[in-house]
């Protein structure tokens, strides 16, 4: 499989002004490496504050102004420079952001998904994608404040898959969705991967990651600690890194085994 995206020893630090004029550097990502293959779903798993969203924003070259990056990001075999990222955004690389505040409150859903395009093809495609996530065409006429949280999330996902990108970065796309809709969204990701798209699925939910993804990258405090086939997290066998083992052990059913043994005693 061809890697579509690689991050190599990526680090991100923020400068803040401390007392007086002194500047403090806070490092958020220290040493992050991962590979996303075309045609595969790669899951990036980590706790809250591990730096998952920062990685997503770094790929799009949309970090805040006071952020400094080191290390390299390559897309499709060549370094992803700011200029290249600008050219690829919205054409080949798509972001599904984490929250529902990412919709313009003053713009209707339809124009927002279509990015203002009014041609027949865009309209048809927009309707098709919304329908796929269980949203009727009347939703196109609604403003974000008229959507439920789950609907808004589906609209954000529709925005991202609107023009068949080659890489999708989905930042925790499923919280707030009912299990049926979440299943539909994840199945669509898998289908897109089968058609050759690289999918980076960011989540804190290991259970979800191992059912959907081919590969799991474990992130902890801004550092990649493990990059393994998802299958290893089914049985727990072959997991060598202690943090990965601990994560696996913390999963409900593995915990249940322990519990049962305890209750037998």
């Amino acid at each position: 499989m061809e890697p579509i995206l690689t991050a190599d020893h990526l680090s991100v630090a923020f400068t803040r002004y401390g007392r007086g004029l002194s500047r403090i550097a806070l490092s958020a990502l220290t040493d992050l490496s991962l590979t996303v293959d075309a045609g595969r779903v790669t899951a990036l798993v980590g706790g809250s504050g591990a730096g998952k969203s920062l990685l997503a924003h770094a790929v799009f070259h949309l970090l805040p102004r006071n952020a400094h990056t080191a290390g390299t990001i390559c897309y499709d075999g060549a370094p992803l420079t700011p200029a290249r990222a600008r050219a690829l955004r919205g054409r080949e690389i798509s972001l599904i952001p984490q929250g529902i505040t990412y919709l313009d409150p003053m713009m209707k859903v339809g124009p927002q998904v279509r990015r203002g395009r009014r041609d027949g093809m865009s309209r048809a495609r927009c309707r098709e994608i919304l329908a796929r996530y269980g949203l009727g065409s009347e939703v196109e006429e609604l403003y974000p404040f008229e959507l439920s949280g789950g609907m808004a999330r589906r609209v954000l996902i529709a925005c991202a898959v609107m023009d068949s990108p080659r890489l999708i970065v989905a930042d925790e796309p499923t919280p707030g969705l009912d299990s049926q809709t979440a299943g539909r969204v994840l199945a669509h990701f898998q289908e897109l991967a089968e058609q050759g798209t690289g999918v980076l699925l960011i989540t804190h939910d290991l259970e979800l990651a191992r059912t959907v993804a081919h590969k799991i990258v474990v992130l902890r405090e801004g550092r990649t600690v493990d990059e393994v086939p998802a299958a290893l997290f089914q049985t727990g066998e072959g997991l060598t890194h202690p943090y990965s083992r601990a994560l696996w052990q913390a999963m409900p059913e593995n915990g249940l085994i322990v519990d049962r043994e305890v209750s037998v005693l």
Binding site: L62, L88, G90, L95, Y102, R115
Partner: peptide, 9 residues
Amino acid sequence: YIFLARARG
């Protein structure tokens, strides 16, 4: 939402 507009080119 401006962030997303930028991310979508």
